[in-house]
Design a protein around this nucleic acid. Structure first.
Length: 981
RNA sequence: GCCCAGAUGGUGGAAUUGGUAGACACGAGGGACUUAAAAUCCCUUGGCCUAACAGCCGUACGGGUUCGAGUCCCGUUCCGGGCACCA
């Protein structure tokens, strides 16, 4: 009887064994090099784990196991990002506390994860909603509150240093990150009371209360960060978002713009993610120029304003100026005659939502009545107010150069303003010339159209645009007309959410002044509430808490009834956003149970940062920016030992699901087969519409379990949902009901979720692991398709059979391997090692299949080949590897104590087993003949040439020929070009 | 509009980074074993022309470099992603 590959038994056995022996427990070990592998931890949703989740986990698990076999001390932890909106919305609907559903979901996730055989060290698990964990989220927030950012040293500094500076010099010689530029003296500072000082300091703190325009989502009842808003609607739920002015906690992430940008050059991330982050940070180096203005075409100067431009070279093409409607200057420059028109325009702008402004780009604007004086030409140009200029970027004022900016061009055409081209050969009669390429013309050389400064006038004729920009910058700086300025698009992160299920702020309000709860009293624990919606008075849900205040004397939360007393203060009612808990969790894994610090200096020094981080690219402008900011801040404090948290990043693609649709005729209970429908594309609605005999039919999702192939199982759908029980199904001529199938993101609401449990049950975890890797490159998104899974399972059976004879006995022996055996083995070692390093596991699997077939055909028995083979497959399929490793150990006495296969040494590749000389490809051309030899690697160029020309295989080509030339391709191949003698 | 990444059989995808294009798997077709089915195994499978051998064409399209191009360079088309009245 042949020994069967009984994966159920094998996997069960090893899951137990790993738990008993704590195989994956990791401790700091100074004698071994560390390696830190990390996955983005999951949000435990009610739908459970689907086949997309494990993709990244398997990929990183393979890498972790591989590194461990190479002798590294590998940290490979897992945890849960367990605060979030779905749990809260579930709670609002059902009244059940979000912790109950969250914990239930976590248990379910854990059960599913355990089936797949990961090498996670579960003793290091973290949960963001655990007070012992969010203690340190709160602590980090407090540290940010107590810090400001010094621009000169590009580092966070204690706020006390800044206070000392104010006491001594006011704002003199201050170069720090700030919300707005304030100017005051030391005397003024000293004269202010505590409340005023507190407000002023908010201008500098890294965590600060700010009056800002926020993305308010009425449907969700909370504000959202910029990355949580997509095309004017909320990322979650797709609800409309409006702009609202609110007092919110913010993080001064913009202070770190330059460091966030520079850091990208030091990490191994995909170019596309780095590029996305660069776009998001949006550095632009330009020039600020002071523009004096007058209130009439001939009048005296009334004041000045500052514009920002990246195209300083176009100063000679300015024909008007534009202010953002929200700019404070609008009021100053509006003349009495234009007042009514300006007010009308401002109220029009106010009436428009952010979304309307984003979609609708029609030209609007109004003349202010004032004129700006171009400091280079001395020209007076009208000042307009228009919504195409944004208040939040640069100075909220621009110089308009219609010839070379398409937006200015559209505006100039609409208001019939002059257009002056400045680039040789640029035709601006139909559209502007925006490119930064060409030779500059039209700058006056000596006439009165340019202003002399200290005997110098700006002249750019003949320069390239890039040279002209540099020259203008120099001119502007030398003559104090403005300054070189770097702007960033990155906005500060809004850090308050009007929700219940998040980290509470460790902040109370003492006579209205925001005050930090003392560090030793942390964490401030999330209180129980009865209702998870905002209070009747519109306070966030925490306002529903019975006990939610701070008594400074007792330093504890006291009864709400005592709040009127002078010594009792209200605590902050907002909670922190989702990214708070996920911003530093990788540090906590290094020392997860430490209750004295976020992590000990020893743990930080050993583990440093994450060597390999695996997760989806959808976090490019969210988590992956916030974490980098958070880590840089902690690095400035000395808590984190590396400036960048994630050295190498791999973005696994999404596994999509196949959604299936049936079609219900409007207003009926009849469902029509997809074949029978007319499909029309509705351009306006940007979707397809379906018609059956003139009647419209709506696509309705049906569960994947009700469909096989493209055919609907009518009985199954009737049982699945009551609404289908009595439905009528119109089938096609063959009596089949065909559904429409589409590839979409896997989601509970689309009924297209495939769950890994079933595959584990039917094929085993090893097959699942192998198959998920085989599906295609890790970084690519691809639809889930079970069709190929049999192939992987079949391979594992073949692999298994390599080790057992027909009677079910292990057939390994001590014999010496043949040259063919070694060649097959070493080719595999080379391929698999290289693939793991490059994360192209999908191509390793065919290599395993080929090697297995070869060794089977060679009837290989030698344990000197079979043992390394088991080591090689161990990272991919740990269960089968353990079983075989154990069996091999039993067979060869004295090797019983060699432990788990995850400590088996990774086989070392030796090229000498591969090498042989072969003629590669004789080709004729131009009367000559060329052939190629593959040779050993470790020869000198001369040796290779000599070997090639004397190789027996070569002689039949060389006979009667003259060698024209030989070309040695480094290390491997020789091209020999020959012609008849 | 700007930036980034792509395009290879019926399908997912290989190709040692410039060296026999299509590995491996799926699907399809044919066969063996079997009362039958499952399981397993073997053969064929890019296109065209062939009875067969052979031959020709073929990596989105058009050029170029090279003894040699899926790979490098220039241009075009199409798909995906990011940013976007950011001056």
């Amino acid at each position: 009887m042949a020994k069967e590959y009984n994966f159920r038994e094998i996997e069960k056995k090893w899951h137990q064994r790993w738990v008993e022996q704590q195989t994956y427990r990791v401790t700091e070990d100074a004698t071994r090099p560390k390696f830190y592998v990390l996955n983005m931890f999951p949000y435990p949703s009610g739908a459970g784990l689907h086949v997309g989740h494990p993709l990244g986990y398997i990929a990183s698990d393979i890498y972790a196991r591989y590194k461990r076999q190479q002798g590294y001390n590998v940290l490979n932890p897992m945890g849960y990002d367990s605060y979030g909106l779905p749990a809260e919305q579930h709670a609002i609907k059902t009244g059940q506390h979000p912790q109950i559903s969250t914990f239930a979901n976590i248990d379910h996730y854990r059960e599913q994860l355990d089936k797949i055989g990961f090498s996670f060290d579960w003793s290091r698990e973290v949960r963001t909603c655990d007070p012992a964990y969010y203690h340190w989220t709160q602590w980090a927030f407090q540290q940010m509150f107590q810090s400001y950012f010094c621009n000169t040293c590009q580092k966070a500094q204690p706020i006390d240093d800044l206070i000392r500076h104010f006491e001594e010099k006011g704002t003199e010689a201050l170069d720090v990150a700030q919300s707005e530029e304030l100017t005051f003296t030391a005397e003024e500072w000293k004269s202010w009371d505590e409340r005023r000082r507190s407000e002023v300091l908010m201008n500098y703190r890294l965590a600060f209360l700010g009056e800002t325009m926020v993305n308010w989502c009425p449907e969700l009842g909370t504000v959202l960060a910029n990355d949580e808003v997509v095309n004017g609607v909320s990322e979650r739920g797709g609800y409309p978002v409006e702009q609202k002015r609110m007092r919110q906690w913010c993080l001064r992430i913009s202070a770190y713009s330059q460091r966030l940008l520079d850091g990208l050059d030091t990490i191994q991330w995909s170019e596309s993610i780095k590029e996305t982050q660069r776009n998001w940070i949006g550095r632009s180096e330009g020039t600020e120029v002071e523009i004096p203005y007058t209130l009439s075409a001939t009048g005296e100067q009334e004041g000045s304003f500052t514009i920002f431009t990246t195209r300083a070279d176009t100063m000679f093409g300015v024909t008007f100026f534009v202010l953002a409607p929200e700019s404070e200057l609008v009021d100053k420059v509006t003349t009495p005659e234009q007042r009514a028109a300006v007010d009308a325009y401002l109220s029009y702008v106010k009436s428009r939502t952010e979304r309307e402004r984003m979609i609708d780009h029609t030209v609007t604007g109004v003349f202010s009545g004032a004129y700006g004086i171009n400091p280079i030409t001395g020209d007076r140009c009208p000042i307009y107010i228009a919504e195409y200029v944004l208040a939040g970027y640069g100075t909220g004022a621009i110089m308009a150069v219609p010839a070379h900016d398409s937006r200015d061009y559209a505006f100039a055409k609409h208001f019939d303003l002059p257009i002056i081209p400045l680039v040789e050969g640029a035709d601006v009669s139909q559209e502007s010339y925006d490119a930064k390429e060409g030779i500059v013309i039209n700058s006056p050389v000596s006439d009165d159209k340019s202003v002399l400064y200290d005997g110098e006038r700006l002249c750019l004729n003949g320069l390239s645009i890039k040279e002209a920009i540099a020259e203008t910058k120099r001119f502007v700086e030398t003559h104090h007309l403005g300054r070189i300025k770097v702007n960033y698009r990155l906005r500060d992160a809004i850090f308050s959410r009007q929700r219940y299920w998040g980290e509470p702020f460790p902040v109370y309000y003492k006579q209205g002044i925001p005050t930090m709860v003392p560090e030793e009293c942390l964490p401030i624990e999330l209180p129980d509430v009865e209702k998870f919606l905002p209070t009747e008075t519109g306070e966030p849900p925490l306002g529903n808490a019975q006990v939610w205040a701070w008594d400074e004397q007792h330093r504890q939360i006291v009864d709400k009834a005592l709040i009127d007393e002078k010594t009792v203060f209200p605590l902050e009612l907002n909670t922190m956003p989702g990214f708070a808990g996920s911003s530093a969790y990788y540090l906590r894994y290094m020392d997860p149970t430490n209750d004295k610090a976020l992590l000990s200096p020893e743990a930080a020094a050993y583990w440093q940062n994450v060597d390999l981080y695996v997760g989806g690219s959808e976090h490019a402008t969210g988590h992956l920016i916030y974490s980098r900011y958070w880590n840089k801040f902690l690095f400035d404090l000395g808590v984190s030992k590396k400036d960048e948290p994630f050295q190498k990043l791999i973005n696994q693609g999404m596994i999509q699901g196949w959604s299936s649709f049936v079609f219900r005729i409007k207003g009926t209970n009849r469902y029509v087969c997809y074949d029978l429908l007319d499909v029309q594309y509705d351009d306006a609605a940007k979707k397809s519409r379906y018609f059956y005999q003139g009647e419209e039919a709506d696509p309705i999702y049906t569960d994947i379990s009700t469909v096989s192939g493209k055919e609907l199982d009518v009985e199954k759908i009737r049982q699945w949902m009551p609404e289908f029980r009595d439905a009528e199904f119109v089938t096609n001529a063959e009596g089949k009901y065909i559904v429409l199938q589409m590839v979409e993101k896997m989601s509970k609401s689309k009924y297209n979720v495939v769950n890994p449990d079933e595959i584990c049950t039917n094929y085993g975890a090893d097959t699942l692991r192998l198959y998920e890797m085989f599906l295609g490159p890790i970084e690519q998104s691809k639809p889930w398709d079970v069709a190929g899974i049999d192939g992987c399972h079949r391979f594992l059976k073949k692999f298994w059979m390599l080790f057992w004879d027909k009677e079910g006995n292990l057939q390994a022996d001590d014999s010496e391997p043949t040259a063919d055996n070694l060649k097959s083995l070493h080719r595999l070692i080379k391929k698999v090692s290289a693939d793991i390093e490059e994360f192209s596991y999908n191509t390793s699997i065919p290599a395993f299949m080929v090697a297995t077939t070869e060794l089977t055909n060679q009837k290989c028995r030698s344990r000197h080949v079979l043992e390394p083979l088991v080591s090689l497959i161990a990272p991919f399929c740990p269960h089968i590897a353990e079983e075989l490793w154990e069996a091999l150990g039993d067979k060869f006495p004295g090797k019983e104590d060699r432990g788990s296969v995850c400590d088996a040494q990774w086989p070392v590749f030796n090229e000498k087993y591969l090498v042989e000389s072969t003629v590669k490809m004789p080709v004729q051309f131009n009367g000559k003949v060329r052939f190629t030899l593959e040779l050993a690697a470790d020869m000198s160029k001369e040796e290779i040439e000599k070997t090639a020309l004397t190789a027996p295989e070569a002689q039949k080509y060389l006979d009667g020929m003259t060698v024209v030339k030989t070309v040695v391709v480094p290390g491997r191949i020789v091209n020999i070009v020959i012609k008849p003698a």
